[in-house]
Design a binder for these strands. Structure first.
Length: 232
DNA sequence: GACCAGGCACATC
DNA sequence: GATGTGCATGGT
């Protein structure tokens, strides 16, 4: 066996960063745009989300007040390239209405309260699940929360760092307790896990050339998708 | 033509 | 509490 989980996770991070470099997820974008992107990217290719965001910008809709005012049907038409546009228009509206009702349209309010409180508040919004809530906290608000997704779970399971039945919150807590608490680190690490996951850790793994190939791992991967279960 | 993508809510067992 | 399904576009 090699060292502790903490050491192993840091070694993985170094290996991934050396191989792929910084991923620059959500660089230079406004918190508003990041929140919108987090909602639009649900089960959707990022390229399609970029198209939808470009259309929103074109329509001058990357603004909470404008989003609050617009009709859901018209919003759906604008974000069409993101797919599932009727559902996503509803979710965007849910979020914006909630933001005005509860925080007077001030996203910053979420940066001013304890993390767990902000997370619990976000989770009350219909359309905001754990991954989206955590993406908002980390990428839009710079709070040190680890975003777990299907790739995160699969990569960590393949390298024997988590059980195959670990739930979302369990994986999140494992990462947050094993790593230095740093938004910058969590940001980069999550993006790197997605990158290595896409290239090498699909349900059918392609280990050749994987930056993590030299580390211990299961010979085969299951088709395990994400952190499905609740673990409270 | 399948299969996938930076999920989630809801129904059903 | 686990599993299945609809949402829907655009790339490979």
């Amino acid at each position: 066996m090699s060292g502790s989980s903490s050491e192993q996770l840091l070694e993985f991070f170094e290996a991934l960063l050396a191989a792929y470099g910084p991923q620059h997820w959500w660089p230079g974008q406004t918190p508003t745009e990041i929140v919108v992107g987090a909602l639009l990217t649900q089960n959707t290719n990022w390229k399609n989300v970029e198209r939808a965001i470009a259309r929103l910008r074109q329509a001058d809709l990357l603004d909470w007040r404008r989003l609050h005012e617009i009709e859901s049907d018209r919003l759906a038409e604008v974000i069409r390239p993101a797919g599932s546009y009727n559902v996503k228009a509803r979710r965007l509206k849910n979020f914006v209405v909630w933001l005005f009702d509860r925080f007077d349209g001030r996203l910053e309010a979420l940066a001013e309260m304890p993390i767990e409180e902000a997370r619990a508040a976000l989770l009350t919004v219909n359309g905001v699940g754990r991954e989206t809530a955590d993406a908002i906290l980390l990428y839009a608000l710079g709070r040190p929360v680890f975003v777990v997704d299907a790739y995160t779970a699969r990569v960590l399971w393949r390298h024997r760092l988590i059980d195959d039945d670990a739930g979302y919150d369990q994986i999140k807590e494992f990462l947050e307790s094993a790593l230095p608490v740093s938004a910058a680190l969590f940001n980069e690490y999550h993006a790197l896990l997605v990158e290595v996951g896409k290239r090498h850790c699909r349900p059918r793994p392609q280990c050749e050339g994987c930056p993590l190939e030299r580390f211990e791992h299961h010979a085969t991967a299951t088709g395990r998708s994400a952190a499905a279960a609740d673990d409270s």
